[in-house]
Write a protein that binds this DNA or RNA. Structure first.
Lengths: 330, 330
DNA sequence: ACCTCCAATGTAACGGATTACATGCTTGAT
DNA sequence: ATCAAGCATGTAATCCGTTACATTGGAGGT
């Protein structure tokens, strides 16, 4: 592999001049530039970015940490991040942490070791103290999930309000016994959505019943199982609000297998508006998040932070939307 | 940020000794090692890997290029790649190329610029000449999709045999008019699967009918549309073989909307055995690939190539399996 | 006491680029 | 003709580790 030295020698100039040509510096005479470009082509020269990165102390690489790549919810967020990142000259790399703290730390070392310029967390197993500590020295943003109290910027929807709106919708349709399929994780979204659920009931004068909250792992099977439990009860709920579309779709399967009609016998609401939510029968009422925008804003925040334009951690909330489909209302 | 110099000064040793401690070199006296470790802790020192990478001319990073991250088919392959990669001290980064050649080239520059040590392509828009050219200088592997004739190793299933088996299964069930929902792309798998389909018909003495092959984009909508077209015909097929589970599921929706029964009125076979294929009603007959193993083998190959143990490009085929479910057979 | 040898450690070159500063040359003013 | 200014280019320091080679000091042999 040719180095900048080789190019300089071949073009009969100094390495500084070659570097100037490479970096589009202004003060290079046209014929010199030509000579250099010819030499570059002749030698099939590719700059070794390890050298440049060392000197500049930046890599123009951004890491996006995903708890899992199997959740299609992240797809559009990543697209948004990529859009803004690439437009600003950054390469976006994704990492699958598998919600494993060790894995997360391996990838975070890349940040600490300066191999990447910044990171966006879609969810993290780190404590708020650990996050604050790293966030003090390295650019990072939390996206969708976040740790309250960590001194790291985040962007998210208002999960409390979203859950409130979904439950309110069910109440308006006349439902009084509304089952919730919540999450076993300790994410803030889970906590806030449960709070929104409770508040909506309270505001409607419906007594809260602990037995109407079951927990799942956000996947199809969890939803299926939880719904089955609800269905076995004497006084089964007439509606189910699941914390993810996947769980909602699982629940729908259980309901249909039982020979019941959706939404007549039991209404179902999901969360996330994944593509599949329109592919099932009946189509699923759900909460939609502006994922693409969320991605764009997360990357914007990160860019600002890397430029040092963020003095204080920012907390941004974006709008959500209740999308009413046939699973609650004909 | 502390540098190795700072650590050396604080520990009262030379940078070489610090480096030896960092790299677990043998010839460091125990008490010296202790001193250095104390200094490292005191200064909260993290080696700046840009320096190391420049010197060693390696980054221990591997890139996996995905045409899209929304296809859950890749999930387990990535898990396999990660398993083997992490175990060997490599960080795995995923990139979403969006099947865009330009995007692909941006990420490939990272390889050319030595920012990553090797790459695994899940699919590429590059020509076989371009692949061969890059493959001559940089470690890379093709996984699942590949370009015939490119001098780059690959691992895949035998798509011809898999399609043959699926169609044979339908024929054995008595189907004579079998529609195929193929792909508009120019991937080798598409070509080979069409060939397998034709050969199975031929071997069964069924005349090939060009009108029974429609093309789609591998997504739900394509399958839905293609199936609709089939359903409108006077002599509609009695079975559909789709090149992806997503298309098969889309087709199932169209069939059900038409009021027809699966598999009685129309049988459906998919490809990939994604998780959703068991979540639909009826569950989908499909071709299963050992995705996890494929990922492991791909990474193994890459490791060998990076070590220079591969003289010739390798072509590896792994077993597939026809999984018979209710969408073809009660 | 002297020499050899080896383990432990230090010194400095090196990897490939960027860039502050130095230098030389051209140009235009006087 | 002389000089200042300014542009184009070159020189060399620098980024931060790694590592070949040099050096030191102590143990063991005679």
């Amino acid at each position: 592999m040719a180095t900048i030295q080789d190019v300089a020698k071949r073009a009969g100039v100094s390495v500084a001049t070659v570097s100037r040509v490479l970096n589009h510096s202004l003060s290079v005479r046209e014929d010199t530039r030509k000579k250099v470009q010819v030499a570059i082509k002749d030698l099939n020269y590719q700059p070794n970015l390890l050298g440049r990165n060392l000197r500049r102390s930046e890599t123009k690489m951004i890491l996006v940490l995903l708890p899992t790549i199997s959740n299609t919810f992240y797809v559009k967020i990543v697209k948004g991040i990529e859009e803004v990142g690439l437009r600003n000259g950054y390469n976006i790399m994704l990492c699958d942490t598998d919600s494993d703290k060790q894995r997360e730390e391996v990838y975070l070392d890349l940040l600490k070791n300066k191999l990447i310029d910044g990171a966006i967390f879609m969810a993290t197993e780190l404590s708020k103290e650990e996050l604050s500590e790293i966030g003090r020295y390295f650019p990072m943003i939390q996206c969708c999930e976040y740790k309250e109290g960590a001194e790291v910027s985040y962007i998210s929807i208002d999960n409390f309000a979203a859950a409130y709106k979904a439950v309110q919708h069910l109440i308006e349709l006349g439902h009084q016994r509304i089952g919730m399929i919540s999450g076993t994780n300790h994410c803030i979204s889970t906590f806030q959505r449960e709070a929104g659920y409770k508040k909506a009931l309270e505001d409607a004068g419906i007594a809260f019943d602990d037995a109407l909250i079951l927990k799942g792992e956000y996947g199809f099977k969890s939803g299926f199982r939880a719904a089955k439990q609800f269905l076995h009860r004497d006084k089964r709920p007439t509606a189910i609000f699941a914390m993810s579309d996947m769980m909602a779709i699982g629940a729908m399967k259980a309901i249909k297998e039982r020979g019941l009609q959706i939404p007549d016998d039991m209404a179902v609401v999901g969360f996330d508006n994944i593509r599949f939510s329109t592919m099932v029968e009946p189509q699923l009422t759900t909460i939609s998040q502006p994922q693409y925008d969320i991605g764009c804003i997360a990357m914007d925040l990160l860019l600002k932070q890397m430029k040092g334009e963020l003095k204080e951690p920012q907390h941004i909330f974006v709008e959500h939307e209740l999308i009413i489909r046939k699973s609650t209302f004909k």
